[in-house]
Nucleic acid binder design. Sequence first.
DNA 1: GACGAGTTGTGAATGATATCACAGTGTGAA
DNA 2: TTCACACTGTGATATCATTCACAACTCGTC
Lengths: 227, 227
Amino acid sequence: MFAACLVKRLSLYRRVLGALASPEGWAGGLGSSDGEYVFSHDLASLAGVSAAQVRRDVMTIGYTGSPRRGYDVAGLIGRIGEFLDAPGGQSAVLVGLGHLGKAVLAYVGGRRTGLRIVAGFDVDPAKCGRVIHGCRCHGMEALAEVIAEHGANVGLVAVPGAEAQNVSIQLVRAGVRGLLNFAPVRLQVPEYVFVEDVDITVSLESVAFFARHDAVRRQAMIKEAVR
Amino acid sequence: MFAACLVKRLSLYRRVLGALASPEGWAGGLGSSDGEYVFSHDLASLAGVSAAQVRRDVMTIGYTGSPRRGYDVAGLIGRIGEFLDAPGGQSAVLVGLGHLGKAVLAYVGGRRTGLRIVAGFDVDPAKCGRVIHGCRCHGMEALAEVIAEHGANVGLVAVPGAEAQNVSIQLVRAGVRGLLNFAPVRLQVPEYVFVEDVDITVSLESVAFFARHDAVRRQAMIKEAVR
DNA sequence: GACGAGTTGTGAATGATATCACAGTGTGAA
DNA sequence: TTCACACTGTGATATCATTCACAACTCGTC
Ligand SMILES: NC(=O)c1ccc[n+]([C@@H]2O[C@H](COP(=O)([O-])OP(=O)(O)OC[C@H]3O[C@@H](n4cnc5c(N)ncnc54)[C@H](O)[C@@H]3O)[C@@H](O)[C@H]2O)c1
Ligand SMILES: NC(=O)c1ccc[n+]([C@@H]2O[C@H](COP(=O)([O-])OP(=O)(O)OC[C@H]3O[C@@H](n4cnc5c(N)ncnc54)[C@H](O)[C@@H]3O)[C@@H](O)[C@H]2O)c1
């Protein structure tokens, strides 16, 4: 099926293209790109990938540009949307309204996309019944009902590690088919559930490692030497 | 050089092994693993990878287990530490003490690892001079000085997208060689700087996509049919 | 209208990553 | 002490992802 990395790049392209097309224009000082059209290498440099990668991805989703002019920005955004988004929009719920949960709500709440966070849940009674960053919050007992009501099929897990497995099972039982997991635990779920882990500890240790042994510097040196 | 994904898996193994070795034991009900030794397939299932992958990774870092008994948990943790961690510890700084920045401080602050967040920075005067989640916060004018003082070479970027590029350049000038970037922008930095993006929007859209077209379910069906 | 510069689209080649499969081996049981 | 088993270590292989390289094309220019 479609590779996960392709989907992520498309999501990224779309965001970059949106910035390009926005009234503000783009401060990055891209050589070309008047905002109407964009070349594969410009999009590539904004997205941090190679031009060939961009062209292949565009090809994969069946969009086509024009030689000498590039890709139509609005058209490509549209095509990516057709590919990525659910036709009638999609709903997600967030469990765990602690530090991280609230930060995510603050961030995602303010965006207009095909995907909305329609409800939050927490065991802490102090958080239930309130509206946080524009999102209504409920106690865990309402989980199944609220998910069914909205037809939500995506769940964000921002509870402590010890609770994450338990919470994710509840989400799956209630009909969720995709989990974005922030807890530092690998979730055991049925194989038809897609799980994406955002593991900040792992990312941080990885950065620390490469900040010392920087592979990239060495690679760059090699390339430089060959040239 | 060493692949980024190897490093991430090692970080994950270490955390899983730590849970295994902890006095609490492991609630996961693993078949074997009394906490002293662990089999490749047990570690694999806890980490969500294949047993062969675990064995290969262990081999790569030059550790060796014993047939019929598995890997010595403490010994493997130690070896991973030698491989991943800086001998004398490593310091990081965080820029942007908004929702996300504070959440990260709250989380990472409470952990004892070879990597510490030694300072925070923000333009908002209300946040400077205070201690947030155990971390002293400064104005941006102190950036270079504080980084030099601690010898920090890792930077976490949690400022708004429009500021991220600017901030990351300041960090690199001050000596940072690895960036963990939470802003939805691809940073343009010298090639000797390692950048890891934590892009929640992209992850979320990816989950939403696969929650619908679930590749995994289909793969599972194919495997089932072949069997 | 013809040309040339500069792009796209894409098959083929390469490179990276994960899995297979099995020989080799230490361990506990008898 | 011997044996059989269940596990590790690893070369070979398969799969996945990216890049190369170039033909085909488009458009502005002369
Ligand atoms: N804060 C970060 O930057 C960060 C970074 C990496 C990982 N994480 C992980 O994200 C998760 C949340 O982190 P946090 O900093 O927001 O923690 P937190 O303690 O601030 O918040 C956890 C929230 O979950 C709620 N909760 C606890 N058990 C629950 C349950 N069974 N059902 C529903 N809600 C429940 C709590 O009431 C609390 O509001 C943790 O697993 C943490 O390891 C956080
Ligand atoms: N909150 C989330 O869950 C989330 C998710 C994904 C991405 N992000 C990204 O993370 C970044 C931070 O998000 P947030 O929710 O914490 O935003 P926020 O607005 O709450 O915090 C931003 C902080 O950065 C500070 N700041 C602004 N300009 C600065 C500068 N030039 N130098 C130093 N500090 C500066 C502000 O004073 C503020 O404290 C943003 O880029 C956002 O897009 C956040």
